[in-house]
Amino acid sequence: MVAIFLIGGLVIAVAFLAGSVPAPQAPSAAMSALGPSAQPSSRPAPQPVCSPGSGPTEIAPVPPGVRARVDAAWSRIEGWLAESLTTEVVWNPPAADAAISRAQRAAGAAFPPDLVASLRRHDGVRAAGFTFPPFYAPMSTGEIGADAGKLCAATAGWDGSHIPFARDSGGWYLYLDSSGAVGEHAPGGPGDAAAGSLADLLDRTADMLEGRRTDRYFPSIGADGVLGWRLR
């Protein structure tokens, strides 16, 4: 009789424990309980889209304040160059809106307002004479469109929303990203961030030329009378 009671009690205890412990969930159910952010995505990360020749033809309006800021910075840069260099800097004429529109379409992305304002002031520079620090010459609308296509075709990971606007002779570029910030592109991969915007870069360059700002580089005039930049 005692044995019967012991066996009955054991059965009741096992049944109680089995009812109080939930059955293990399948992995997908457990992750769903933690919310969508806890579940690993099965989708691959989106890759930058590179589509030269399909950019917009309509030019973004340039706010008066942006135009005034860009023109003021260029005026300061031009003034310093005229007073300090023995060799004249030869600028390309201002870009017509038709040329800017063609360049946008060729590059595959819309130009930020400060780039539009800058191109309407100078459509790049001829030969040597002016560079953004340390060695980047402003590009013309034709060069921007052509080089954006080359970078899309030849550079793995080049983001199609990037717009090159200044370059050296060895495959380095300054570009504007989709937010309008300035970045540096090194051959084969990204470089460093350069400035918050093209307008910021122009202001900073003018400050460096006039000695109002201490930076990694400072202006240096070569024996040929051409502007260069030296590392501090």
Rank of each mutant, 00 (worst) to 15 (best):
M1Q: 06
M1H: 09
A3Y: 14
F5C: 04
I7C: 08
I7G: 15
G8I: 13
G9A: 10
L10V: 10
L17R: 13
A18F: 12
P22N: 06
P22F: 02
A26L: 07
P27M: 05
M31S: 03
A33L: 11
S37I: 13
P40L: 10
S41N: 09
S41L: 13
S41M: 12
S42N: 14
A45S: 10
P46N: 01
V49G: 04
C50I: 08
S51T: 03
S51P: 00
S51K: 12
S54Q: 13
S54A: 15
G55H: 03
I59M: 07
P61S: 11
G65Q: 13
V66Q: 14
R69E: 11
D71R: 04
A72T: 02
W74N: 04
S75F: 15
E78V: 15
E78H: 05
W80N: 00
L81K: 00
E83A: 15
E83P: 04
E83S: 11
S84I: 02
L85M: 03
T86Q: 08
E88N: 12
V89C: 08
V89Y: 05
V90W: 10
V90I: 03
N92L: 10
P93S: 15
A95H: 02
A96K: 08
S101A: 08
R102S: 02
A103E: 10
Q104S: 07
Q104C: 02
Q104A: 03
Q104V: 03
A107C: 14
G108V: 12
A109M: 13
A109K: 13
P112T: 04
L115E: 07
A117T: 09
L119P: 10
R121T: 03
D123L: 02
A127E: 09
G129E: 07
G129H: 05
T131K: 07
P134F: 05
P134A: 05
F135A: 05
Y136K: 01
Y136Q: 01
A137G: 02
P138G: 06
S140P: 00
E143C: 09
I144D: 00
D147I: 06
A148M: 12
K150G: 08
C152V: 12
A153H: 01
A153K: 13
A154H: 06
A154G: 11
G157R: 02
G160V: 06
H162W: 15
I163Y: 01
F165P: 15
F165K: 12
S169I: 07
W172D: 12
Y175I: 11
L176M: 11
D177S: 09
S179L: 11
S179Y: 15
S179R: 15
E184W: 15
H185F: 11
A186C: 09
P187C: 03
P187G: 12
G188S: 06
G188A: 07
G191M: 05
A194P: 00
A195M: 01
A199S: 09
D200M: 08
D200G: 13
D200R: 14
D207F: 06
L209E: 00
R212S: 07
R213D: 02
D215E: 08
P219L: 13
P219S: 06
G222E: 02
D224F: 09
G225E: 01
R230L: 10
R230D: 05
